[in-house]
C-alpha cells in the first residue's frame, strides 16, 4: 500500500505522516517512510532527533556526488574497453536498503533530496524526479510506503499517485489551507487516485469541523483535534509518541490507522493495526 501525505505548508503533514508510520510499524507492518521535502525534517517527527536528522544523506544528493566523482575519473576504463559505472541505475528497493535509516519502531526512512548548498545544481528538480522514481517504482505489495511531500500541490503532481494509492490531504480549518486542499482534490481527480481523504487537523470545536466539511463536500473528512502535545513536541524537536505517547491527536491518528475501510490491504504480511 502506498500513501501520500500532502497539503499547504505548516498544516501538520509531517507530524501526521510520522505518527501514522510508527503506528503501522508497531502493528508489525514493514513501513518505508519517504521524506520528499527538499527541507527534510520527517526524521525529527519520527523521533530520530534533531542532530541525527540534520546529518541524513538524501538520494538525489548522493547520486549527484557519485556522478561528479565519476566524471572526474572517466579515464578509469576496464581492460576490455568498457568502464564501470559507480552509479548504475539502482532499483528503489536497493536504494532503500542502502540509504535508508531505521527510525523508532523500525520505520525505514529515506530522503529523496535535500537542498544544502546553492552550488549543487538543480537539486530541487533532482528531489522531485527522485520522488517520482522511488514512489512510482517501489514495491509496496508487502509493506506500507508513506510519502511526506513538499508543501503545496506541485510535489503532488511529481509524486504522481495512482489508482491503487491513498492520498491524505491535510488541512487546517482556515480558508487558505482549505483553498490548497480543494485544488489538491482536483489534482487527485485528474490523476484518478483511488482513495482521497481530507484530514482536518487542529480542529478546536464543532464549528471547525463543519467549516472543512462544508467547504469540501463529497469527500470523506477525518478530524484530528487541536492538541498542545503536538505543538510542544514540534518545538522540542521530538516525536509526540516519545514525549507524551498519548493525547487527543495521537488517539485520532491511531483511530485513522485502524480504519480498515480506508486502507487497501497489503497482500501477505499486512495486519495493519
Amino acid at each position: 500500500m502506498k500513501i501520500v501525505v500532502t497539503g499547504k505548508g505548516g498544516v501538520g503533514k509531517t507530524t501526521i505522516a510520522a505518527i501514522l508510520a510508527r503506528t503501522f510499524a508497531r502493528a508489525e507492518n514493514e513501513v518505508v517512510a519517504i521524506d520528499a521535502d527538499p527541507n527534510p525534517n520527517l526524521g525529527i517527527a519520527l523521533g530520530l532527533g534533531v542532530d541525527e536528522t540534520a546529518q541524513l544523506d538524501a538520494i538525489a544528493n548522493r547520486l549527484m556526488r557519485e556522478k561528479a566523482a565519476h566524471s572526474e575519473h572517466e579515464h578509469s576504463h576496464n581492460g576490455d574497453g568498457t568502464h564501470s559505472h559507480p552509479h548504475r541505475h539502482k532499483t528503489p528497493d536497493e536504494i532503500v536498503e542502502e540509504m535508508g535509516v531505521t527510525a523508532p519502531d523500525g520505520v525505514r526512512l529515506v530522503l529523496t533530496g535535500s537542498i544544502e548548498r546553492p552550488a549543487d545544481g538543480c537539486m530541487c528538480c533532482g528531489s522531485h524526479a527522485t520522488t517520482r522514481h522511488i514512489f512510482a517504482e517501489i514495491d509496496a505489495r508487502d509493506r506500507i510506503v508513506i510519502a511526506d511531500l513538499e508543501a503545496g500541490n506541485n510535489d503532488l503532481i511529481w509524486a504522481y499517485p495512482k489508482a491503487g494509492d491513498v492520498v491524505l490531504v491535510v488541512t487546517e480549518p482556515y480558508r487558505k489551507s482549505i483553498e490548497v486542499a480543494r485544488r489538491a482534490l482536483n489534482v487527485c481527480r485528474d490523476l484518478e487516485v483511488g482513495r482521497v481523504l481530507i484530514v482536518a487537523n487542529r480542529v478546536a470545536d464543532a464549528t471547525d469541523g463543519d467549516l472543512v466539511r462544508r467547504s469540501l463536500p463529497d469527500v470523506q473528512v477525518v478530524e484530528i483535534p487541536d492538541d498542545p502535545v503536538l505543538q510542544q513536541a514540534d518545538r522540542a524537536g521530538k516525536s509526540p509518541l516519545d514525549t507524551e505517547g498519548d493525547s487527543g491527536a495521537i488517539r485520532a491518528i491511531r483511530e485513522l490507522a485502524s480504519r480498515r475501510s480506508i486502507w487497501s490491504q497489503p497482500s501477505t504480511s499486512g495486519r495493519l493495526v
Binding site: 527541507n39 537542498i115 546553492p118 530541487c124 513538499e150
Partner: peptide, 10 residues
C-alpha cells in the same frame, strides 16, 4: 514566496 528552500534555491 513558496514554502521552503526550493524557489529561493532557484
Amino acid at each position: 514566496l513558496e514554502a521552503g528552500p526550493s524557489t529561493p534555491f532557484q
